[in-house]
Amino acid sequence: MNRRHFFLALSGLAGCTRNSRPRLNVINYSDYIAKDTIPNFEREFNVDVRYSAVIEGSEETIAKTMSGNSGWDVVFPENRLVFPMQEMSLLAPLDHSRLTNLNQLSARFRNPNWDRDLRWSVPYLWSCCGILCPRAASITSWRNLWNEQYRGKITMLDEPSEVFAACLKVLGHSINTDDPVQLRAAQKLAIDQKRYLRAYLNTEVRDQVASGDVQAAQLWQGSAQLTIDSAPRLHFVHPSEGYSLYCDCVAILAESKRQDLAHEFLNYLYRPAVAAANSRASRASSPCTNTNESVLASGEWFRTSSGPTQRLRDRLWTEIKSA
């Protein structure tokens, strides 16, 4: 290749990035959308979508967008992060006149406690946190995870809010408590549990439950269902004491310069066929159906904790890990 060819090739590359079609930038969790949702949208609306499924935990969404200059248009914050993100002026208000498909939402999700009247976000998929274990195991409650029989065969999530939620439910408290006495009691329970634990693992535990290394794992229902699909001898338990519920929402960033297109995308996500396909692929529940009412009834939604409570929880968590 001589120099002229080289520069020709370079200008060709530059041409590629200057595409005439508008581009929407969407960032989401992995395993959280049906395969053809994005390609179909691109084709129908004649746009490009830069879809990135790199988000690991919900806190990452906030960390990545906090600068107000992240380059993303559409994000999927967890319900408890909607209020903080809105307080930090990160979210754009939704124009409901352009979101006609939201009439598909079941009544329960049209006015959730984290975002009244859906001014800043729309529920995308919801699920809960329970226990993945073999059908043969007689596990029905969180309390069963403090058991000599399963010593070294139990894992909890490496997420302070979920470990606290399980311990608080064993004690009969709210998962969102601000009471230091209740939080310390939950911490004591968590430290007591460490001798039965194999480890604190997130979704990477899936293989080990499937292979039998782990007998019981605290896990999110979506991930658990994906494991059960490949290992039918397992099942997912909704612990009898109650459990945490979470709802991942879809929102448009205030920084986005493509508000119209972003609204089109949101509206598209609530077409019945699209919503159903995404729910099937991720194994999480769609807010557009009325199924799983009983799951909602015994669960409790996470709420944003205040600064001092967040700090106390972090300290107690650090002590649990150090114990």
Binding site: G57, E59, E60, A63, Q310, R311, D314
Partner: peptide, 8 residues
Amino acid sequence: NQFTTARD
């Protein structure tokens, strides 16, 4: 943890 869950 300070940069993720604790957001501190």
